[in-house]
Amino acid sequence: MELNLEPIKRVKTISKEKFLKEYFALQKPVVIERLTQDWPAYHKWNLNYINEVAGEKKVPLYDDRPLSSEFKFNEPHTYMKMSEYINLLKTKPTNYRIFLYNLLKEVPKLQKDFKYPDIGFKFLKKMPMLFFGGINSKVFMHYDIDLANIIHFHFNGEKQCILFPPSQTKYLYKVPHALISHQGIDFQNPDVKKWPALKNAQGYITNLKHGETLYMPEGYWHQMTYLTPGFSMSIRSYPKKTLNFIKAVYNVFIMRHFDNVMRKTRGEKWMNYKNEKAILRTNKRNGYLINDDQ
């Protein structure tokens, strides 16, 4: 079964006033197709260029293995030189991804290749993060720990983005004490007999190509699939809703540390408990039995 996904609206360009009124204020996503076309990055940023300026950097890598007690919250699975990783991306499929990496801090010259867009809110200028992936590699369905408003720029190829607003959390089998949905769900081809609540979820979808920009409102769930090898950069702004700011503080200073302690002390029993609770709570909340075949 296919999910109930609406194409994200696209605009070529947009004024600050229109962006604030029609998307930010309403907390709706939008793709801006030409926001980066006057950046040096639009013409320069590809895998070859990154290899040229950052090939010697040792970078953290993640794969698509299920979360386990073996690693702490957001702990990398391995490390590799950037040149070796880019060669891997260009030669064969790989599940290894770079996630939340501040390459612009490591290679300051890259900071001259872009500018912060004037769209009506302030950005955290010390936190432009880069993400890399190989063909068909996937980022699991999650929302960001700080519930920020995110501007997401894609380079070198194409990636698919599936989004759900926070109002749909009750259908997404959210894992307790975590920021993810149950990792057994294939959001490209979900088994609704196994995950019946997904039938009620309503979200958004788009494919981002080189130079295109996606606005993801605060607290939005997102799942990414790289259709070609490529990379993206995110910049972020603090959540503007007071409740979301409070939740973000809780996530950063309490939730993730509590989860790390429980992983260390209870191991896989803790991980299994959380996954079981995700299924039980979601199915119960939506009127389904655990083995309901509706």
Rank of each mutant, 00 (worst) to 15 (best):
F73V: 13
N74K: 14
N74S: 11
E75A: 13
E75V: 03
T78G: 00
K81S: 10
M82W: 02
M82N: 02
S83Y: 02
E84I: 01
Y85N: 06
I86P: 01
I86T: 05
N87Y: 09
L89S: 03
L89W: 07
L89E: 03
K90I: 01
T91K: 15
K92E: 15
T94L: 08
T94V: 12
Y96G: 00
Y96W: 15
R97N: 11
R97G: 01
R97S: 06
I98V: 12
I98C: 04
F99N: 11
F99Y: 15
F99K: 14
Y101S: 01
Y101K: 07
Y101L: 06
L103G: 01
L103S: 02
K105Q: 13
K105V: 00
E106F: 00
E106T: 08
E106A: 13
P108G: 03
K109E: 15
L110F: 09
L110N: 04
L110P: 03
Q111E: 14
K112I: 00
K112S: 13
D113W: 04
D113S: 05
D113H: 10
F114W: 13
K115W: 00
K115R: 12
K115M: 06
P117I: 11
P117A: 09
I119W: 04
I119S: 02
I119V: 14
I119N: 03
G120E: 06
F121H: 07
F121W: 14
F121V: 09
F121G: 01
K122G: 10
F123G: 03
F123N: 07
K125I: 13
K126C: 00
M129C: 01
L130S: 08
F131A: 02
F131C: 05
F131D: 03
F132M: 12
G133R: 03
G133C: 08
N136W: 05
N136H: 13
N136P: 00
S137T: 10
S137W: 05
Y143M: 06
Y143H: 11
D146L: 12
D146Q: 13
L147Y: 09
N149R: 12
N149A: 10
I150F: 04
I150W: 04
I150Q: 02
I151T: 09
F153N: 05
H154T: 07
F155M: 13
N156Q: 15
N156A: 13
N156R: 05
G157T: 03
E158D: 12
E158F: 00
Q160K: 15
Q160P: 00
C161N: 08
L163N: 04
L163C: 08
L163G: 01
F164G: 02
Q168K: 10
T169V: 06
T169M: 06
T169K: 15
Y171P: 04
Y171T: 09
Y173S: 10
K174I: 01
K174L: 11
K174Y: 07
K174W: 08
V175F: 05
V175C: 07
P176E: 08
H177F: 14
A178W: 14
L179S: 03
S181D: 03
S181N: 06
H182V: 04
G184T: 10
I185T: 06
F187V: 08
P190A: 08
D191W: 07
K194P: 01
W195M: 08
W195T: 06
W195P: 03
P196A: 10
P196L: 10
P196K: 11
A197D: 06
A197P: 05
L198F: 07
K199Y: 05
K199W: 04
N200R: 13
N200Y: 14
N200L: 14
A201P: 08
Q202V: 12
Q202C: 12
G203E: 07
Y204D: 02
Y204V: 09
